[in-house]
Design a protein around this nucleic acid. Structure first.
Lengths: 242, 242
DNA sequence: ATACGTCTACTTGTATGCATGCTGCGCGTC
DNA sequence: GACGCGCAGCATGCATACAAGTAGACGTAT
């Protein structure tokens, strides 16, 4: 039992990022055989990966039971964002009462890095730090189910949300929000923190929705081919295939 | 390709209800071979069912990778209920603006039946109707993700919640809440509906938590055996097993 | 030319065989 | 008697073979 990442896991991750990165056309059928051939492994781990994708909403079965890449509508994005705007502020409210000193210190560190990244104009780092900061707050809510739920929502939004990094002014605003949020949490002002976060998210939603409207579809049919042989051919697989 | 329920699906449902009904001891290992033998099918559909259970949080891997029935703590139940108390009122608020006349009519029918069941003292029917009424409100929120989330939460609470049907007075109160909720929705009073539902849920949570505290564990080790041969032996299976 | 029927090819679902890594137990040695 | 090493059984993970159903294509008849 490889304690290393299983093939099913690798396949799952590759497909998921391919979907959220929009490298796989919505509606593209994900046939078990096709994916298995493209990845050079058998159908069994593919089945597992695909059923996970289905369960998590990255793929859906069409009328005839064929699994296809899910089509994300603006309406769904709005729905997801509305839920985030409900759940994350709640998490912040809980966190204001429950956050530990260590977490507050970690928050400070991330925010310092955040400011630095902003000045460098380092978008990658900003995205990463944004993720980490929200993670800290979320975890500090001490409600594991809530953490799972919000992470799920965030993952589903990951692909589309990349469009919404915004311009320099937006980014500065985000970073400022983060430090204000930290201050409110430290002060134990849950209501204030929740309000700030809600405002923050609702703004982000509007930016995102505007950006979606002008997005054109880019149909590349056999994108599966590009997911070919990269699986590093474990010993077991190599043996079985020779 | 059986358009009927697949074996994996049946296995999944049986195990899930067995877990939520507490017929499977928390911590009980769910080995693929054991379950497969108990159900009289091969490991493949079992694998699928088990990975679904794991993904949905009804089973979890212990330190050595063995899948076991999840152990539900009072704290987790409280967390789940808190989330429901957040999400369902939000759904009601949305529903107040978006519910259709057909849905309002359906709600009225269910509530009539609800009252009748209350007078008959028909607990089964009350539970069923409760489910249906909440479903209507939920669906009327027109936020599919929200519907999924709440249904997921409800499912996880299903087993424990059975303890919280309450006494006659409680039940009457619930039914009354339902009809008041319907009235508020018809009037388009989202805020009022949300408040009513939140209150309702928070009350239910307290009752539930109190009942959990006095619940004793009932260790029956080989409960898997009781899930034996009932799978109606499809033609394919029968052939393969002869 | 269109419509209907049949057949083929492909899809998913299931079973099973095999390899690998872990666990726990027994045996040997100190 | 206790500690450590090795071996066997067993767990999961993967591959592959098989079954059955479906959809689409092709041919034929009206």
């Amino acid at each position: 039992m490889s304690r290393r990442t299983s093939i099913a896991d690798q396949v799952y991750r590759r497909l998921r990022t391919a979907i959220t990165d929009q490298r796989l056309e919505p509606g593209l059928p994900l046939g078990e055989n096709d994916v298995a051939r493209a990845m050079g492994v058998s159908r069994t781990p593919i089945r597992e990966a695909l059923s996970r994708l289905e369960l998590e909403g990255f793929a859906a079965r069409d009328e005839s039971g064929r699994l296809t890449v899910v089509r994300v509508t603006a309406e769904q994005v709005a729905d997801l964002f509305d839920l985030r705007s409900l759940l994350e502020p709640y998490a912040a409210e809980l966190a204001a009462e429950r956050i530990s000193d260590q977490e507050l210190a970690a928050l400070d560190r991330e925010i310092t890095a955040d400011t630095a990244a902003l000045e460098r104009g380092d978008i990658e780092a900003l995205a990463e730090l944004n993720q980490r900061i929200h993670d800290i707050v979320l975890t500090a809510s001490r409600n594991r189910m809530l953490v799972e739920l919000v992470n799920d929502l965030r993952q589903r939004l990951a692909g589309v949300a990349a469009f919404a990094v915004g311009d320099a002014a937006e980014r500065a605003h985000f970073v400022d929000d983060h430090s204000r949020l930290a201050a409110l949490l430290r002060a134990g002002d849950g209501v204030g923190a929740a309000r700030l976060l809600r405002h923050h998210l609702e703004g982000a939603r509007d930016v995102l929705l505007a950006s979606i409207a002008e997005k054109d579809t880019d149909p590349e049919v056999d994108a599966l081919a590009r997911l070919l042989q990269p699986l590093p051919a474990s010993e077991a697989t190599r043996k079985a295939l020779t």
